[in-house]
Amino acid sequence: MGEYGLLMNNLRILRSRRAKLDSWVRRIFWMFSALPFLLVLTILTALWLKAQPLLLAHPLSKLLLGEAWRPQKGEFGFLPFISGTIWVTGVALFFAVPICILTAVYLSEYASGRVQRLVKPLLDLLAAIPSVVYGVWGVLTIVPWVEESVAPALGRWGDICPIFASANPTGYSVLAGGVVLAVMIAPFIVAIAYEVLQTVPAGLRQASLALGATRWQTVKYAVLPRASTGIFASVILGCSRALGETMAVLMVAGNVAQVPRSIFDAAYPLPALIANNYGEMMSIPLYDAALMTASLILFLIVLALNIFSILALRHVLRESE
């Protein structure tokens, strides 16, 4: 065997070892890549199994529509918590959606490149602030504000408009939870809505402007209709974030197990229920199953919203590529 043959032989050995290594890496990768999907299934199964004792003991309609929450007596009505979640999330969306869409439109259609570059880190930062810090901020500023200014001012209209009726002497309320949540979900909605607006082809805007439309008319008649699916998906994504948010809401929403009738009533959303009661659930029968049912309800709602918005966004963002 000449020198050349030796070299080729060495190369072959090397090549086969490298090829073998590569095929091993490939196999390990297939195992790894199944992890996320399996994890979703595992969480779902685990929650389902732990929630089952309660789901078998009581009819579903009684659980979901029951107003009484007395674990000691075996009464588990989730309506106060479900409606608390809906109220707080609804208030958050009421504030966040118009402000976020206007901000995203401003950033995408009006702001200069410098402002756009400056805002990105700002939004990242706002999204990175831990939720307990939002909670502290809420307790220090929003709760007193609701208690001292908003509730007395709007409470006078309570007779005409029952959602403003203020029977709660503290500021720990649906409104405080909603405002804090609105600030928390704003960076998500703005960032995604901005990205969606960026995918609208420039030609569309140019055509509209060339026809003599003002910039706002261009936005209203050309840009927004085109981006509506994506913007809707960004709002849904923000909504699912708000639904699952725990600590900040827990700290400012008041946590009274009642169905809220006004924005000044205390609310007790599902995540707060889980977080507040986990330590003491062991002594009462079915209590842990009830908390797992709460987790399961939360998980299923968030899952449905997320799958919808992810698929919609994927469609929108991919179409533009």
Binding site: P36, V40, L47, S295, V302, L311
Partner: peptide
């Protein structure tokens, strides 16, 4: 397959942390 992996990851990203807490505690 990559689409499914990414979808699962996106779903997991959206799972509220309290649900992870409850799941971890159960396990």
């Amino acid at each position: 397959w990559a689409d499914l992996v990414r979808l699962s990851l996106d779903i997991l990203w959206g799972v509220p942390s309290i649900v992870y807490g409850a799941f971890g505690f159960t396990v």
